[in-house]
């Protein structure tokens, strides 16, 4: 009954659009203003990266990317993401499982605490690790006696990156798994599956697209983080420079074309992220539509 009313409703709207939309010139004006704003604030900055990167020619572009320091920065960025993303992935799944499949006291406090790294300025995210592990920090002298370096070394960069990308996967999964409830898992358990089987065969297939989306966002931020990593890195060329930090160094040395060449790789990563995000969104809407169609057929 409700369905037929909704259908008739849309038919009425499309037959008489005037009352609930604007005149053609207002529409054009609004679309035009939105486009102008987007061109100046999003499109031009994106295009400028590639224009500047190629301003000294294609050969210079590839030479800049083949410098030993550039390759070292790319390697360090990949290594950092390869450690930070899986750790936050495991955390995100564990936290979402505990939060969405069980009822316990203090749940909303826990959800708020998971979001904390998003509220903290990147600079402060780096600072807290300097205060803990730096030479003047709480654990600094102790680390020094064992000749362990965390700050101005790779472990500090990894730690700061884990901190800033901490909430991404959990945040994507919690609302999704909340919506899905626990009925399917309960059914699996009643039918004799053990915990891991239930997770891998029932829960994981249900959340895979949301999980993938969280990982994509987490990875983009891990590879692109600048402020937090800048505080803990010490900027040692070839050793503790990630790609964004190397972009800054080249830029401050007035090697603009080389700086934009490295930046263009990061911009490409951003574009790939956007395409992947759109694809995942499209896939989820499609799955949702299929489910609805299937539900209708079974009725």
């Amino acid at each position: 009954m409700a369905g037929s009313i909704a259908l008739r409703h849309t038919a009425v709207v499309s037959a008489q659009p005037r009352a609930t939309t604007e005149s053609a010139w207002v529409r054009r004006l609004l679309i035009g203003s939105a486009f102008t704003f987007l061109i100046f604030f999003l499109v031009l900055p994106l295009v400028a990266v590639f224009v500047q990167a190629l301003s000294k020619g294609v050969a210079a572009y590839f030479t800049a990317l083949h410098q030993p320091d550039a390759l070292a920065a790319i390697r360090l960025t990949l290594l950092t993401a390869a450690i930070a993303v899986p750790l936050n992935l495991v955390f995100g799944v564990a936290a979402a499982w505990a939060i969405t499949k069980f009822e316990f006291v203090g749940k909303s406090l826990l959800i708020t605490l998971i979001d904390v790294p998003f509220a903290v300025s990147p600079v402060i995210s780096g600072l807290i690790f300097v205060l803990l592990f730096g030479l003047q920090g709480w654990l600094g002298p102790w680390l020094d006696t064992y000749d362990l370096k965390i700050i101005f070394a790779v472990p500090g960069i990894v730690l700061a990156t884990i901190f800033v990308t901490f909430p991404f996967v959990a945040r994507e999964l919690i609302p999704l798994m909340q919506e899905q409830g626990t009925e399917e898992e309960q059914a699996a358990l009643v039918l004799g599956a053990n915990g891991w089987q239930t997770f891998f065969r029932v829960t994981l297939p249900n959340i895979k697209w949301g999980l993938l989306y969280g990982v994509i966002l987490c990875n983009a931020r891990a590879m692109g983080e600048f402020g937090a990593v800048s505080v803990v890195s010490g900027h040692i060329r070839g050793q503790t420079n990630t790609m964004p930090l190397y972009v800054e160094i080249l830029y401050n040395e007035y090697s603009f074309a080389a700086s934009f060449a490295i930046a263009s790789l990061l911009a490409l990563l951003a574009l790939v992220t956007l395409v992947a995000k759109t694809a995942v969104e499209w896939k989820t809407t499609q799955l949702l539509a299929n489910e609805r169609a299937a539900a209708k057929e079974s009725v």
Binding site: L38, L42, P45, L46, A48, V49, Q52, P122, L217, A220, M223, G224, E225, F226, G227, M243, P244, L245, V247, E248, Y251, S259, F260, A263, L266, A267, L269, A270, L271, T273, L274, K277
Partner: peptide, 15 residues
Amino acid sequence: VDLPFALPTAVAGIS
């Protein structure tokens, strides 16, 4: 619209 989420801040800065 999501570009500012995806583009590293340093890249946006120099651009």
